[in-house]
Amino acid sequence: MATGGRRGAAAAPLLVAVAALLLGAAGHLYPGEVCPGMDIRNNLTRLHELENCSVIEGHLQILLMFKTRPEDFRDLSFPKLIMITDYLLLFRVYGLESLKDLFPNLTVIRGSRLFFNYALVIFEMVHLKELGLYNLMNITRGSVRIEKNNELCYLATIDWSRILDSVEDNYIVLNKDDNEECGDICPGTAKGKTNCPATVINGQFVERCWTHSHCQKVCPTICKSHGCTAEGLCCHSECLGNCSQPDDPTKCVACRNFYLDGRCVETCPPPYYHFQDWRCVNFSFCQDLHHKCKNSRRQGCHQYVIHNNKCIPECPSGYTMNSSNLLCTPCLGPCPKVCHLLEGEKTIDSVTSAQELRGCTVINGSLIINIRGGNNLAAELEANLGLIEEISGYLKIRRSYALVSLSFFRKLRLIRGETLEIGNYSFYALDNQNLRQLWDWSKHNLTITQGKLFFHYNPKLCLSEIHKMEEVSGTKGRQERNDIALKTNGDQASCENELLKFSYIRTSFDKI
């Protein structure tokens, strides 16, 4: 039985969820670079991206490699990797027998973001014989899940209580170790020597080791999670996991709180800001991140802002960003909400898709409305799209047979046209069989910064309504002859009103 693990408890099935942008060198404390989270699957090609990484700022997932063999891993080693800020997950990587050479110096898994409450997941690794993470000293947050690894031993010899604050939620089941077939031998045991430290858990006094050649490092209890030197002297209180010299914040392997210019500090002093819960960055760093993602459509890219001495992905609820200094300031009234469309555009074809934009005031991208039916549609669209004030790209209304009016965009005031449909149009209306009105132009103002209007096959939309939009939106004169079809717009509506004058002759039985 794995020490510190839980057996036999019912657990939810383990679901495996399925960018080499360097964020800056980590400095003297770390020998390499800070790398983003990685999802490495199918083959070993991307694994080489770990070569210079000291910190993975995010998670590391290595999974679904069915053609790899043990010899493929023999020359692979990433000794610079010290810390993973989120979680480490391995799933069905064939041929991998140990992690001792792959990650010989991995010391800390912070667990800032977890995989279903777990910071370390080893699942269905069919050839893994031992973990071998002999320098792993601290899992700051989260638990361990090690399950269905039929060859995995050296679990009962690990004292997880020396690595985690609590072992109650560890789930370590259905491994070879369960069948008591392992016969784990710690260093020196074969020669009758006791080389590794022994600890007591559940009444068992057991030597602690990761492999037959690597003991588990056990520091004096007084050192807590700070770690200790090879001689057993406690590291500085700002260290986490390990250090090369005692009581020196510049000799830590990793930091308990924050890293700044080669030393570990309790908090980031001005003019620095907390970033990702582990390091200090200056304003320029946060500003660069903001600008890199301002026009990016890459998933996970955030326009970072500053709030409460932190550089964070977005302002919290009730705050909006001051564009001059990136500071989050309290909103006066309802907060603006910028919604970034991942692929640059979004099609609204149902109430469900409209709900995804609920509360958005600025759309960074283009909207395509293609709704053919739905219950209580006008009210639903207004509830979900009615706060949109600005669209950076274009607005396209296409084959939306259920629409009679666009009044559900009740606050839309600006279409920038930074991206144009077919390279020309910022407003595009095609084949809307029941569209009769755009907006009530006596109450609604709309500016279209650039781009043209396109109207074709809107049989109940009168040309007068379209011409009014040209005047109000500032697009009059931009359109070419064929942009607004004269014969297919309003051709099934009563669009022309003329005053009919009647004269009559009164007659009676005795007068003409």
Rank of each mutant, 00 (worst) to 15 (best):
C186G: 04
P336Q: 08
I163W: 01
S324F: 04
A254I: 04
T68P: 07
M65T: 07
I146D: 00
P271R: 14
K148V: 01
L120Q: 00
H307R: 03
N42R: 00
H48K: 04
G188E: 09
H226S: 10
L50F: 06
S112L: 14
I40P: 00
N257E: 07
L88F: 07
T211N: 02
I82K: 07
N242C: 06
K80H: 08
T45L: 12
N282C: 01
Y154L: 02
V200T: 07
P187E: 09
G203L: 08
K251R: 13
N242S: 11
T320Q: 13
W278Q: 05
T267P: 02
E33D: 14
A190L: 10
N242T: 11
I312L: 08
V218T: 09
L88N: 01
P246Q: 01
P330L: 04
F283G: 10
E57S: 12
C209N: 02
M125P: 01
F283W: 06
E180D: 06
R162K: 12
E130M: 11
P246C: 10
K129T: 06
N282L: 09
I62K: 00
R145F: 04
H28V: 06
K67P: 01
E147D: 03
V206H: 14
F103S: 00
F115Q: 00
D247L: 09
M125R: 00
C331K: 05
E168L: 14
A156W: 07
C153N: 00
G37K: 12
M321L: 03
N179R: 15
L128T: 03
Y134D: 07
E231F: 13
R113W: 01
E49M: 12
H291Y: 13
P79N: 06
S317T: 07
G58C: 02
I40K: 00
I201R: 07
N308C: 02
C243Y: 00
Y94K: 02
W210Q: 02
E49F: 14
L81T: 08
D184W: 13
C209A: 11
I56H: 04
L102F: 12
I222E: 13
S161Y: 12
S77K: 06
I306P: 01
D247N: 06
S225I: 14
P316K: 03
N195E: 15
L327D: 02
I312R: 13
P246T: 05
G300Y: 08
F258Q: 13
P197R: 09
N295W: 14
N42A: 02
D169A: 05
L63K: 00
H291P: 01
P197A: 06
I139F: 01
Y272K: 04
G241M: 00
T85Y: 04
I163N: 01
N295E: 10
K294N: 08
L50P: 00
C315A: 09
T320V: 10
D72W: 03
I163E: 00
R256T: 10
L120S: 02
Y273V: 13
P79T: 07
L240F: 06
S317I: 01
H214G: 03
N43L: 05
V253Y: 13
Q287K: 06
H291V: 08
C53V: 01
D261C: 05
W278S: 07
E57R: 02
T140L: 06
Y319V: 10
Y304P: 03
G183P: 11
K67Q: 00
Y272W: 08
P330T: 15
T45W: 14
L76M: 10
H28W: 11
F78P: 00
I222T: 15
N170C: 11
C228G: 00
C182S: 03
K224C: 07
L50E: 01
Q216F: 05
A198N: 06
R298N: 07
L289R: 14
Y259D: 07
T229F: 13
N175G: 06
D178L: 08
C234H: 01
L88R: 01
H48N: 15
G183K: 04
N195P: 06
S225Q: 10
G95F: 04
L50T: 02
I62Q: 01
Y30V: 13
F115S: 01
N150D: 01
N117D: 10
N150V: 09
R256H: 08
R297D: 09
S213M: 11
K176M: 03
F91E: 00
N257W: 07
P334L: 14
N150A: 10
T189W: 07
N179L: 05
L327V: 04
I109D: 00
P104V: 02
L60C: 02
M65A: 07
Y273E: 01
E231P: 06
G333Y: 15
K193N: 11
D72C: 14
V265I: 04
F285W: 05
D184P: 02
Y87Q: 04
N202G: 14
K100M: 09
P270W: 13
F91R: 04
V34Q: 04
N295C: 09
T320W: 10
G227A: 04
